[in-house]
Nucleic acid binder design. Structure first.
Lengths: 357, 357
DNA sequence: CCTAAGATG
DNA sequence: CATCGTAGG
């Protein structure tokens, strides 16, 4: 059995090599881990099949320097080395309402394509923020195409829910400790097959990594979005009955005028329609708090997303689409919520939540 | 009527801007030249509608530095500045069989995407080779999407035949002087709608810029290719009855074992099947000469194409797919045929023909 | 503007 | 391993 795996064109034995590449699933020598394939709603309550949490992580990846990359116009695609982490303060000095210090960090980032984000050195963020839980949205990467850099990442358990549609949506959740349980989806097939929600259960709370459906250009998928809103609200409510919930991720809505640079001209656009905004309002009315706005009620120019177009980011013409939303009864545990707008690697920036557990 | 043309996402007025972008053909202020749209078989015998050959060429393009570009692996996509033109000898010192010096240069290059090739500074080649006629294959660019850099190129008349299928095939012909006539296609709709052939008529000969159909992976389009071979042979024969013909371009076949690095393992692959090779043999038997092989009958390692994969070019694992093929009775006019294998910018390199007119 | 997959070579 | 178009954002 030959070992050739790369696609070959006009080269020795190329047709056969291509055959080999296209349909040789069983040729993969990697151990098939017995974790859920990240689709549907497979509840896993103990997750100790792999030897109790210390499964060895291979460390054989080629050390490839991140490449300086330039966009076609050569101007806006950020250089991977561009984030100046040293001038960012990653310490949380604030105490929560109970006077407790932060001892647990949750970060969330819509990476807009995990593989591109990796090349832009996105992982470096973890070394500075050092989150206990890291939520990823829009990974756009099937699990079997995850780069080794991610697969072999040490220090975190990782969970993925990917879309059936390749290169579309997809969420991930990294956890320094193994959660009590991990749940995939919100219980509605139409949404769950798009890879939009992972729930990790911890002793005191749930962490939900979520990527809410975009209403689309010309609002073509607004109906789907409103369906989602209903189902998601219901899903979270069920969790909230059991333990406090921390929803993390891209809610794909700027809740109020203060949450985007151009509210007036965007009332008919995805992310700021009446329906979407009301959806957020109704969600919060169920008993949750938008932590950023709680801590910074008047703060303007606080955004987590800037279109790649029109140099929006350098002009800070952005939207606050990424949130931490926590159960009301849990709010006093939260020390702070920071938007890491200086951190590059995606059209969204990461956000960080500091709490005491 | 607004001027916004760029696509906008989540920005002021974006939906309308998108509308504007998608269907505003009549918004284009450029003068619509009355030349054939590059499809079908529109014979143009005089072509003097635009003021007799000295139509002013706009010179208003933004001077944008070519950007250093890196492939995803960061290794094989060549840097645009990589071609070292200064160490290439562009002079032709040879005389033809009649003892005449070269006074006319024809160059041909499969550019594998005109726009990408431009960014890799492909045009620079013209400054060094200074061809009188320059034939391009695989431009992969609709005429209305030609970058200004090309549209406003001074010193050449330019003619295009593009595919109905966007981003596929497409040939061009640049001529320092206005040809007596320009003909598009070979008279077979199925082929002509793919943009594969432009014929320029000069006083003493025809120049044909051709991109022969690839037989495809698993030879799926070999039948189409063999149809082409028949039709093309017939088309050239008709021209040859009138004047000598110089066929320039990507014939998509390595004629003999000497014409590719791995003949043994490629006999079933596109470009080196028995059928394709015989096609070339039969074509030449009609009364034409492969000028490179005439001048360099024993020369090995002389290739014009290397797959981007497997570092083939650095190992010179290539194919000679690009040819000048001239009418037998014209061979004595040819001084030399050079393969510019050092010139980068595509997976093919340019070739140059030196002759006396 | 940027990501991804897919078709083509 | 490139090119391109397209969908999606």
């Amino acid at each position: 059995r030959r070992q050739v795996k790369a696609a070959v064109y006009k080269e020795e034995n190329d047709e056969e090599a291509l055959e080999e590449k296209s349909d040789d699933e069983e040729n993969d020598e990697e151990v098939e881990l017995e974790k859920p394939k990240g689709r549907g709603r497979a509840k896993k309550t103990k997750d100790d099949e792999n030897g109790g949490g210390d499964k060895p992580k291979a460390k054989g990846r080629a050390k490839k320097e991140p490449q300086p990359s330039t966009s076609k116009s050569g101007e806006t695609l950020m250089n991977p080395t561009e984030t100046n982490y040293d001038k960012i303060d990653f310490l949380c000095k604030k105490e929560n309402a109970l006077g407790e210090e932060s001892n647990f960090i949750i970060a969330s980032w819509n990476v807009d394509g995990l593989r591109a984000w990796l090349k832009k050195d996105g992982l470096k963020y973890l070394e500075y923020e050092k989150p206990d839980v890291f939520c990823i949205q829009e990974s756009k990467c099937a699990e079997d195409k995850l780069p080794d850099e991610i697969k072999n990442l040490e220090g975190y358990e990782q969970y993925w829910q990917n879309s059936e549609k390749e290169g579309y949506a997809g969420v991930g959740l990294f956890s320094r400790t193994k959660p009590i349980g991990v749940e995939y989806g919100i219980g509605v097939d139409e949404h769950d097959e798009e890879g939009r929600c992972i729930t990790a259960e911890y002793e005191k709370f749930y962490v939900v990594s979520v990527y809410v459906p975009n209403a689309g250009r010309k609002l073509v998928t607004l109906p789907k979005r409103l369906e989602w809103n209903k189902a998601f609200k219901k899903y979270i409510k069920e969790l909230d009955k059991k333990k406090p919930v921390i929803v993390c991720g891209d809610m794909n809505v700027a809740h109020s005028e203060i949450d985007l640079a151009n509210p007036k001209t965007n009332t008919k656009n995805a992310g700021f329609t009446k329906e979407e905004r009301e959806g957020m309002t109704e969600f919060l009315e169920d008993g949750y708090v938008d932590t950023y706005r709680k801590f910074y009620p008047e703060k303007t120019g606080a955004y987590t997303f800037w279109t790649y177009m029109m140099k929006s980011r350098s002009k800070n013409v952005g939207w606050r689409l990424d949130y931490f939303i926590v159960s009301e009864r849990f709010v006093d545990k939260i020390c702070d919520n920071i938007i890491r707008s200086e951190v590059l690697g995606s059209d969204h920036c990461p956000i960080a939540l500091f709490l005491n557990v």
